[in-house]
Design a protein around this nucleic acid. Sequence first.
DNA 1: AAAAAAT
Length: 458
Amino acid sequence: MTKFADLGLDPKVLAAVDDAGYETPTPIQAGAIPPALIGRDVLGIAQTGTGKTASFTLPMITLLAKGRARARMPRSLVLAPTRELAAQVAENFDIYAKNTRLTKALLIGGVSFKEQDALINKGVDVLIATPGRLLDHFERGKLLLTGVQVMVVDEADRMLDMGFIPDIERIFQLTPFTRQTLFFSATMAPEIERITNTFLSNPEKIEVARAATTSETIEQGVVMFKASRKDRQAKEKRDLLRALIDKEGEACSNAIIFCNRKTEVDIVAKSLNKHGYNAAAIHGDLDQSHRMRTLDGFRDGSIRFLCASDVAARGLDIPNVSHVFNYDVPSHAEDYVHRIGRTGRAGREGKAMMICVPYDEKNFAAIEKLVDKEIPRIESPVEFTAPSKPASKSAKPADEDKKPKSEKAERSSDKPKSSRSRGGRKSGRDRYQNDEPVVGMGDHVPAFLTRSFKSTAA
DNA sequence: AAAAAAT
């Protein structure tokens, strides 16, 4: 079997790999590193969890180890679709370049330009960026891409989904024609094919997994759930989620809970916390530092449940997730594959459970078609019963919460309770509550108008 | 009853 030591990496890189505890490369690493080291273009078709990041960072560091960075002219460039993914590549780079003197800058949105500018000015070997922020720097004239010797495009299919392809094309055109390109995508959509034909030259193609395959080590299941009453669906779904989590008990060491909408992510996280579960939300509306902190907390175990939008479905390196809960059925079938791919990685066991409500059934059918197998149905661990009568005035106390506040307030003021009903001074609120319709000011003149302006001003 | 990314 191939070892990292056989791939021709720089000894300093090899030492760092060894320190990180790796000995045997994954298929994508074994396939991509040797051609990358001799300067060839690489087209890697691989999903997350295959060791993709190291398959370009290791050869890049080796290639850059000779030579020095020049001001405002980075020698290499890595493009990633999301901020988190870019940050993660940067972390990877730190780990494997620790024995070298290579410098890097992370250019992502949501953080200030100032520090990024300072780094670029000093000169960096590696620039890791999201496309928008990179072009922003370029347009401000702070950055020259003519010194780029190696360019990496990570998760190209996701860039396509997010509408980044024009940006990517533009960035390609800003870099020298002679650069080496390492290009990674989970799928080869026609548009991706076109880009690779245009910008890669005679690439070594390495394919390690088909996009629509789900790992054999993931145990999948779905609860076909119909709420006891339509207006109770949201609440019952949250109850059901907790019941599913409880049923897993200790086996659920940590989990990602995927929702389709950002508002839902917030609601579910809040609800879990309210019920004593250690949960946090992550989605694109939260500011960058918050997102980073949450992710760190989830990685180090101080957060057990990560409620996430699809910002976390792909790419993010979150090791050792025991469970994935699809609180909502994803509306794009491929997203299902990406979401559940967060568990059962590197041959480990994982469980992926989904809640499917009647509205989701069409999307669910598309998922079963894509993964080409039947997802086992799970019995709901809880039963919900609808109240016998639809909501009426004589309904149970549970309905009382739903009454508008004003109505409740009125009702409580009916009760002959406090001293004020015994002829004492009425509170300001009650003074205006009589049944007579009020037109204009009627006969009543508010007290403040009878005071002189002088005393009012005082 | 749509997420993400530049401001």
